[in-house]
């Protein structure tokens, strides 16, 4: 039990969000600093354009601030909530700008990043390590399909056209991959904190 000088870095995510929503500049700054790397990372991975990614990251924090009232701790962590906002904005931006959200080269590069297992990543988050391993074990075509759908927001039809496969095959690949990845979550609700 103590007071004064408590580093804002120790304040729970939900408390920082609550503090930012009250309009406190110091808390807002701490909130942005805590999550900007994650938010910008998602944006740049999807849009592959630093300027656009920065715009998306900025919009993400604006939305978080304006919609803090709909955040519900029972439906996931602040980190997951922010990540979803950033991802939705990034996917919308790509859909508005390009017919094909990803080039074959970028897809291969992202698959390499997703499958890579640097030691510090594995140690940082056990759930993420399990998910990463599960993605790495997927057949290549299923991994491509689930990354195109889950990261780039490509529809099954877009995936079928991109891969030159029937629509039903694209749907099956997504569904099969998701089924395999679902098993690594275990019986408990997964979170990323």
């Amino acid at each position: 039990m103590r007071r004064l000088g408590l580093p804002l870095g120790r304040v729970p995510d939900e408390a920082l969000l609550a503090g930012m929503a009250t309009g406190d500049p110091e808390i807002a700054l701490a909130f942005v600093r805590r999550f900007q790397r994650m938010v910008f990372g998602i944006a740049i991975a999807v849009v592959d354009d630093p300027q656009l990614a920065e715009d998306i990251a900025q919009q993400t924090f604006e939305r978080a601030w304006r919609h803090a009232q709909v955040y519900d701790t029972r439906r996931g962590s602040v980190r997951t909530w922010l990540g979803t906002i950033a991802h939705n904005l990034a996917v919308d931006a790509v859909r508005a700008r390009r017919a094909t959200p990803v080039s074959p080269e970028d897809l291969d590069a992202l698959l390499g990043v997703v499958n890579r297992t640097p030691e510090q990543w594995a140690l940082a988050d056990e759930a993420a390590a399990r998910m990463r391993a599960a993605v790495a074990e997927l057949p290549r075509e299923q991994a491509r399909a689930v990354v195109m759908a889950g990261i780039y927001g490509m529809t099954a039809r877009q995936i079928s056209e991109f891969e030159g496969i029937p629509l039903g095959t694209a749907k099956t690949r997504i569904r099969t991959a998701m089924g395999k990845l679902r098993t690594v979550l275990g019986p408990e609700r997964a979170d990323h904190d």
Binding site: Q36, R37, A127, A190
Partner: peptide
């Protein structure tokens, strides 16, 4: 529950400093 898989995929993306 399937949405959690999507969340898990996003968590695999590396962070990047703006």
């Amino acid at each position: 529950r399937l949405t959690l898989v999507g969340d898990g995929l996003l968590a695999l993306l590396p962070g990047s400093e703006p």
